[in-house]
């Protein structure tokens, strides 16, 4: 009886916070995910078209530089997703909201994927440009350590069967990692640096042609849209799995089977 009242209250609520309830977020994520995926597809095609056909050939690096249209957005996303993950982990620990932990867990595989893509494309770019696939340079090394942090988070949350403990343990390691990320970044920077300086910064004019910049920004937006789409889908699966004993999931699955 009590749960029924709670369900009614949530459904009638006008506050945006009602979407913190997995039951309310599930349909919302389902509505947004296909749109995000469509946006991601359109922007990827547009960005790659700008990158491969519109942007001029670089004076020094030739056509090799075109890998940045994938490399740079992937590197941006991999770092940003870790921060978002740590943010949701902190929200989850402080406010004790189940959905926050699910968001953190849904973000981790995508972050690790972008991290790997950034390392891989960087290696492919390094071979013709630096003459080697890998150097122990500050940025490369901190990116590699970021990948290890992602893998550690994923391994820890997967190793714990109890969902509540997995959520909280994962949140703590995500936060410890977030405190350590700047320390790792600066320590490896002092240790060794060879990577070319950032080509895009907020404080000065970018040192590249505008077509290149546009291609990169469009690709970055595509990466954002893709992340939203995938995370919404993944969080929907997590919600169904975690809430499988509730009435609304039963009704949802029954409706789904009716349609199929």
């Amino acid at each position: 009886m009590k749960t029924a009242n709670f369900d009614d209250r949530i459904k009638r609520s006008k506050s945006l916070l009602r979407f913190a309830a997995p039951q309310m977020f599930y349909p919302l994520a389902g509505t947004f995910a296909p749109w995000c995926l469509a946006v991601a597809a359109v922007l990827t095609v547009l960005g790659l078209w700008i990158g491969f056909f519109v942007a001029p050939t670089d004076a020094q690096q030739g056509d090799v530089y075109r890998v940045i249209f994938i490399h740079v957005p992937a590197a941006w996303m991999s770092m940003f997703i870790y921060l978002v993950m740590a943010f949701w982990a902190a929200v989850g620990l402080v406010l004790n909201t189940r959905l926050s932990f699910m968001m953190a867990q849904a973000l981790a595989p995508t972050g690790a994927m972008f991290c790997f893509v950034a390392l891989w494309t960087g290696a492919l770019w390094g071979r013709p440009t630096w003459g080697t696939y890998w150097v122990w340079d500050a940025r490369l090394t901190s990116q590699l350590l970021l990948l290890f942090l992602y893998l550690g988070y994923i391994a820890l949350t997967q190793a714990i069967d109890d969902a509540r403990r997995a959520d909280r343990a994962g949140a703590i390691i995500a936060l410890v990692g977030a405190v350590n990320v700047p320390i790792i970044y600066f320590s490896v920077q002092w240790w060794n640096t060879l990577h070319q300086g950032a080509s895009v910064s907020l404080t000065r004019a970018p040192s590249m042609a505008s077509a290149m910049l546009w291609g990169m920004l469009v690709m970055a937006l595509a990466a954002w849209a893709y992340t939203f789409a995938v995370v919404f889908w993944r969080v929907r699966s997590l919600i169904l799995e975690r809430e499988r004993h509730t009435e609304w999931v039963g009704a949802e699955l029954a409706a789904h089977e009716g349609r199929a």
């Binding site: 350590l145 550690g152 391994a155 190793a159 714990i160 703590i172 390691i173 990692g177 350590n180 320590s187």
Partner: peptide
Amino acid sequence: ALTLGLRGGGVLLALLVLPLFVPVLIF
């Protein structure tokens, strides 16, 4: 503390803490 009582705890522990040890190693 995080890996207390988990299966495969030892290997998991290495994966969790080794990246965090890097700055100490460098300095």
